[in-house]
Design a protein around this nucleic acid. Structure first.
Lengths: 408, 408
DNA sequence: CTTTGTTAATTCGGCGGCTTAACAATCACA
DNA sequence: TGTGATTGTTAAGCCGCCGAATTAACAAAG
């Protein structure tokens, strides 16, 4: 319900009737309650359609808030969003590094406090905290399989620890999935039923949102397009396969190819074999060189884009997507180079293109997308009734009675 | 609810309480009504666990039936299944060919009558008819995009026409999706939440079932693994891309490669450039040659299997699958050759293999899987409440906020 | 055979969500 | 200034589901 109002931006009660299928009576009482709770505001009138003018409703954006935290090796990003998913306050702090989880927990609690206090938001209006991190997350406890750099976090009871530290309800998820959800809430995805966010950071992943809820797969690993084969004869990957997207299109591949080219490395200003690889800075430098017109840099990036585009098409074909968003740190930098290539690939060879188009766009907040998505997780869990589990049909006995009267 | 009973085979009321999360009270009344309607039977007692022995429940398999029809160029397959998805009667008739849709409709109506009468089933006990065909189906009307061989069916109002012809409720779907659903109902998929059926006929596709309901994507084209890229430098495909699975692993590719090899063509007994290509017969002949030990035939098929396996891994990674079933006419023939290759590929390189395993098996009824699935569509639509997400219609009537006049 | 404790299943009162039905409010237009 | 159309509210009732109490069936101990 709230989700419908949010997705529509502004909508009347009659509009809600059509959108939800509920009766006018139901809508009336529900909306009444939402207004009483301060979640929804009446915000004007629509033009008459022959009778009484419709009263337009919209979310009271600043009635409730959610905290989103993106936990990563390189940095922790905090955002405070309102009900609409718009960022009210944002903060970036040092990453996890090799610190002990318990230490980080304490630090996060104080930093979250700082975020909330800095924005001047009443704590009672905060619905909860969403925490996302790389790798699949166990919904209840914490990380199942963590990337090498965060190995010591494995099986740490993230949710419960953070709940006691911050006194806020905590929900967990994978960062790519969160990024997709964030786009669904903050971006103008509208009523799109199936879409994905391709997230390119160090690795390449994708988050999937189907009918407004995230698709996680059996173990939270869904959307793993970083390790699908684009070339049977391609280079071997650490995952056990060959020709994976990550090997052919990943920022790591781009950076190491640039390093191998002495002239390019010099032109782009890459540090020569630094002790600590700063791939993101290097990737940004290569992008700048390409935008300046450096042919070799441009070729490198377009090669990467071409491969990413093919992975995107695979994802779009398998999931039969309507919309695709490019996001993540790497695409925040080089998105303008990747976007046309991906668009072209899908225009040319998306399997269902005859039936329906697929729109591709860049995220407007690629760098903070996962954190925003983390907050969106909270918004969703609080506002969208999750119809999990099996429920009873409405008409169990009405299936073609064969003579016996259905006793009521 | 009925789906839980079906999936469990036999289950007690207490078992249902645990499985569904409902209260004992609810279960009691619902089960009572199901028994009154004849859908469920009490079938014995379980061992005591310290107190009163549990009464075991199971579906009354023969209380209701469903008709499943697989419409294809080459042949029409009819099945009549009971509530459990078991085939009660089966029939195969000539394919669609170039006949006019209206003619086929009439023929189907009489053939469905023959099927029902032959099995001696009361018409009032038939829940409905499921019709599946290649290509994406418009849920309401009929085919959207049809394969070249069935071009004259495009936009024909299949559902309504067949409803008036047979006087049965009709549901439509794509055949690969149906095959997956058929496996979910008739096979022992158990409580698996995410699985796919790879369907290899002339082309290659996959049907997806997530949490017991089919995933169709935006336009019913989901699972299109026949046209994902396995080799960026591969041969061009009619779909507009390069190196598609269908080009590298499809039966058509296998057969034409075999024809190109004169010695193999002779050994396998392929007709030399027949006027009408009989790819299925040829594919079967090549398979027999391989099983006899013909090295060249074996190599051809294993090459195909290797590529199909990579496509399967892509699908498994993207959807994060728990189970995979190989089905369809081609795999009904050569499944024993493909199965180990697919298993090996997933064991080696399935991305989530550390978190959870993925089981791969052959369908037990590969040839009739789509027809069984068509019947399962009916069973599901009647027995499982489909909770669709909230949807926004194209035009809700509200557009501009606050005062601005809405132009219509 | 009786008593006791445990588990299974049903019944009954009640709550909440949703619907139908009737009604009040607003607006365009004749 | 009605009049019909459209929007929105209120009241009454249905239905699914839950909680608590009750009945039924069984094992083990005496």
């Amino acid at each position: 319900m709230l989700d419908v109002i949010r997705a529509a931006g502004t909508i009347s009660r009659v509009g809600l009737v059509k959108a939800t299928g509920f009766t006018g009576a139901t809508i009336s009482t529900v909306v009444r309650r939402l207004i009483d709770d301060g979640l929804v505001l009446e915000s004007g009138r629509a033009e008459s359609t022959g009778g009484k003018r419709r009263v337009l409703l919209q979310l009271n954006q600043s009635s409730r808030f959610a905290v989103g935290v993106h936990l990563d090796h390189a940095g922790i990003t905090y955002v405070l969003t309102n009900l609409g998913g718009s960022v009210v306050a944002r903060m970036s702090r040092a990453g996890v590094g090799t610190d002990d989880p318990a230490v980080i927990m304490e630090r996060m609690a104080t930093e979250v406090d700082a975020l909330i206090d800095g924005a001047g938001v009443d704590r009672s209006r905060i619905l909860g905290l969403g925490l996302v991190a790389p790798g699949p997350m166990n919904q209840i406890s914490g990380m199942r399989v963590s990337p090498p750099t965060m190995r010591h976090w494995e099986d740490y009871p993230l949710a419960s620890a953070l709940e006691t530290a911050t006194h806020l309800p905590v929900v967990l998820d994978n960062d790519a999935t969160a990024a997709a959800l964030g786009e669904h809430w903050s971006g103008d995805v509208g009523g799109t039923s199936t879409f994905a966010a391709i997230y390119m950071g160090t690795g390449i992943g994708a988050g999937l949102v189907v009918n407004g809820i995230t698709y996680r797969g059996a173990s939270g690993n869904a959307g793993e397009i970083g390790h699908i084969c684009l070339d049977v004869n391609g280079p071997a990957c650490w995952c056990g396969a060959r020709g994976c997207t990550e090997m052919l299109a990943g920022p790591g591949a781009v950076v190491s190819a640039a390093r191998a080219d002495a002239a390019l490395a010099r032109a782009a200003g890459l540090a020569e074999s630094p002790e600590r690889p700063r791939w993101l800075a290097d990737f940004a430098a290569i992008t700048r060189a390409a935008l300046r017109g450096d042919a070799r840099a441009k070729q490198l990036l377009e090669n990467s884009a071409r491969h990413l585009a093919i992975a995107a098409r695979t994802l779009a074909n398998v999931m039969d997507l309507e919309q695709l968003v490019l996001t993540g740190p790497s695409l925040a930098i080089a998105g303008s180079i990747y976007l046309p290539v991906v668009r072209d690939e899908l225009d040319r060879a998306f399997f269902s293109r005859a039936t329906h188009s697929i729109t591709v766009r860049l995220s407007r907040s690629a760098a903070t997308a996962p954190a925003i998505g983390a907050a969106a997780l909270v918004l969703q869990s609080e506002l969208v009734p999750l119809r999990e589990g099996l429920r009873l049909p409405d008409n169990l006995g009405d299936a073609e009675p064969t003579g016996q009267p259905t006793s009521r």
